[in-house]
Design a protein around this nucleic acid. Structure first.
Length: 643
RNA sequence: GCCGCAGUAGCUCAGUGGUAGAGCGCGUCAUUGGUAAUGACGAGGUCGAGAGUUCAAUUCUCUCUUGCGGCACCA
């Protein structure tokens, strides 16, 4: 007999050789039905795999997030089986579970098309119906390599060859189809269910390396039941409606066109939003004792050579040549220019920390495939700043920065964001002791600021560790917005120095930091976050004065004027249209407030206010001057509201 | 940059080897209507660009270009 202990502490006796499935069946029929796999002494374990002896056993069911991961992984396996049944000669590679689904990478000369999906899905359903047991087998490493090579699966053979010698080679069999896999899997294909759907095909490099062959990746989604699948598809549909490219067009905020790839034509509405954001940031920075500067966009290559950008970043820089052969580059970053300002005159340790900010226009020749609406552009403006400081000021400056960033994000509607901590890369400048200190300073500062970080090992810049502040777009894609990077290298390369307490010259440390990242990307995220329904202070048009009859035209213009004098972005709509039409149109245009004026309001000098999306607040009738005061209060930017 | 898919009116989209159509929007006229679409009429397209096949190409083929989805990239 063996004794198993359940998560709640309860103990049960089972005969030798019993499996987690036997355990589940012993507890209840429904549990046995819902169970997908087990965790035995903390290790993932197939339900039908005999227990190793006395053990702590936890059963994972369909309702649990971890269970879903296994369903997705299993679905990837049946996708691979279905594809190989339908398209002989296709090689399989890898197929993991990912957020919301799974993918599988195939090697095949002919491209897959979404038109193949129906047939593949049908075959997958068929494999589920076959209810093939997943059988775990431990193979000899060389036998496995020989086997996969003999059937032409060179990618699988390569995978096995690269597994550490100590690793057990496990193969899972489903019917006559086998795959190299760590497991665990469900007892049989029938348990997967049919709440899956293939979503898209895409190219993907073997092992994520662009020097390798391009494989064909099929993405799919899979859920515990049909209902979850339906909800997921609906969520995607809803999210697509928030796409900033779509909303931006509908609201006339900006456009882009062929002749200026990756650059933005800001229209009146979008530029109003942009300037509102810029003014807000300027106030926030001023309050934190930043100075603001403006530096040239075109700078001679010699400076970029000195800074190291020409060598490291030259591929991504736009250049211009003068008639006498001088080569200039559009700045991809502001840092070298800021060092030039720092270098003018004498700097003392008393001047540090010196916080130099710029809304800096940068240009980068981004790879064509990377361009994406406002999120990834070739011409953009960073809310950039460089903090020149002493090494022992890094921690305080970082803490202050994180506090500022957190407050700005909260003002802009983002309470949740991810912080990634990228530490020393393999090739780096600076000695290990310096890196130790820099990383510790950053870690301590994040802890002091109370933010949790996700480690991103080896991804730091060559000149220092960095923090990345990541926001998520409507479709779940992550975008780095804020950043803070510690730099010991550039001050040295560009010869920045200050006089220390000791009277000697020293190198300052530079902190490169941005909160929004770029106005373009951040506005893209902002549009998606609010689905275009901006809070009053950000809305391009804050209020429309809509007339019911032309008799109220004169009064409507009076109202518009009064609202404008009160600092509001108001527009009068005197068109010869019904009020229903106007309300609908401006509501769809996401104008936060509509002031309706008819004969009655004109006589009484009142306005009837209608608030977007706030059913309970509809129809507040008030005197014009009271409305001006109330609305300008509501339209006050959050930082000014606090002060 | 790589793989795949796509480009038809301002927008969303239908369609065809014989030079195009809808809805919305736009314009004109009528209507002055109290909180999510008033009606009638009208204008508007080198069917992304170039080349090829063909008696004939928006439609088929190729190249380019841009967009979309991924991958790679994001110093």
């Amino acid at each position: 007999m063996i004794e198993v202990q359940l998560p709640d502490g309860a103990k049960r006796e089972l005969p030798d050789g019993a499996s987690p499935m036997d355990l589940a069946e012993g507890i209840s029929k429904s549990l046995a039905k819902k169970a997908l796999y087990a965790r035995v002494n903390g290790k993932d374990w197939d339900l039908v795999r005999p227990l190793p002896g006395d053990a702590k056993v936890e059963l994972v069911t369909r309702d649990q997030a971890e269970g879903l991961e296994i369903i997705r992984h299993d679905t990837a396996h049946i996708l691979a089986q279905a594809v190989q049944e339908l398209f002989p000669g296709t090689q399989v590679t890898i197929g993991p579970a990912i957020e919301d689904g799974f993918y599988y990478d195939f090697a095949r000369d002919e491209p897959f098309s979404t038109e193949d999906f129906e047939a593949i899905e049908k075959r997958m359903a068929d494999i589920v119906d076959r209810d093939l047991p997943f059988v775990r087998e431990v193979w000899d490493r060389n036998d496995a390599i020989r086997h996969f090579e003999s059937i032409g699966e060179k990618y699988k053979a390569e995978l096995i060859r690269d597994l550490p010698e100590t690793e057990e080679i496990t193969i899972y069999r489903q019917g006559d189809w086998i795959d190299l896999c760590r497991g665990p899997h469900l007892p049989s294909t029938g348990r997967i269910g049919k709440a899956f759907k293939l979503m898209k095909v895409a190219g993907a490099y073997w092992r994520g390396d662009h020097r390798n062959a391009m494989l064909q990746r099929i993405y799919g989604t899979a859920w515990a039941n049909e209902n979850q699948l339906k909800e997921h598809l609906q969520r995607i549909e809803e999210a697509e409606k928030r796409d900033h490219r779509k909303v931006g067009r509908q609201m006339g905020l900006f456009h882009m066109q062929e002749e200026a790839r990756g650059q933005v034509f800001w229209h009146d509405g979008g530029w109003t939003l942009y300037r509102t954001l810029e003014n807000y940031m300027r106030r926030r920075l001023q309050a934190e004792n930043y100075q603001e500067v403006k530096t040239p966009m075109l700078i001679d290559r010699t400076l970029w050579e000195k800074s190291g950008h020409w060598e490291k970043f030259g591929e991504n820089m736009f250049t211009a040549q003068t008639e006498d052969g001088e080569v200039l580059a559009l700045k991809p970053m502001n840092c070298p220019a800021h060092v030039q300002i720092f270098r003018t005159g004498q700097r003392s340790y008393r001047d540090l920390p010196l916080r130099m900010a710029e809304f800096g226009s940068c240009s980068r020749y981004e790879p064509s495939g990377a361009l994406h609406g406002l999120m990834r552009v070739r011409g953009f403006v960073q809310d950039d700043a460089h903090i020149f400081c002493l090494e022992n000021q890094i921690e305080d400056e970082t803490k202050a920065f994180i506090d500022l960033l957190t407050s700005v994000y909260a003002d802009l509607g983002f309470d949740d964001f991810i912080v990634k901590f990228s530490d020393r890369p393999e090739t780096r400048a600076g000695d290990d002791a310096t890196w130790d200190r820099a990383e510790k300073a950053l870690r301590d500062a994040t802890a002091a600021a109370g933010v949790e970080v996700i480690m991103n090992p080896g991804e730091g810049a060559f000149y220092g560790p960095k923090l990345e502040f990541v926001l998520r777009d409507a479709i779940g894609r992550d975008w780095q917005c804020g950043t803070l990077q510690v730099d010991f290298v550039l001050p040295d390369r560009l010869d920045a120095e200050f006089t220390g307490e000791d009277g000697a010259k020293h190198r300052p440390v530079m902190l490169h930091r941005a909160i929004l990242g770029s106005f373009e990307r951040f506005i893209g995220i902002l549009i998606e976050n609010y689905a275009g329904k901006f809070p009053m202070w950000l809305a391009p048009t804050q209020i429309v004065v809509a007339t019911i009859t032309s008799e109220a035209d004169g009064y409507a213009l009076e109202v518009e004027k009064a609202l404008k004098v009160a600092g509001l972005r108001a527009k009068a709509d005197l068109r010869n249209e019904k009020i229903n039409y106007k309300v609908r149109e401006h509501s769809l245009a996401k104008v936060p407030v509509i002031a309706v004026v008819g004969r009655k309001e004109a006589e009484e000098k009142t306005v009837a206010l209608r608030f977007l999306g706030e059913e309970g607040r509809n129809q507040e009738v008030m005197a014009l001057d009271a409305a001006c005061e109330k609305l300008s209060g509501e339209a006050t930017p959050p930082d000014l509201k606090r002060s």
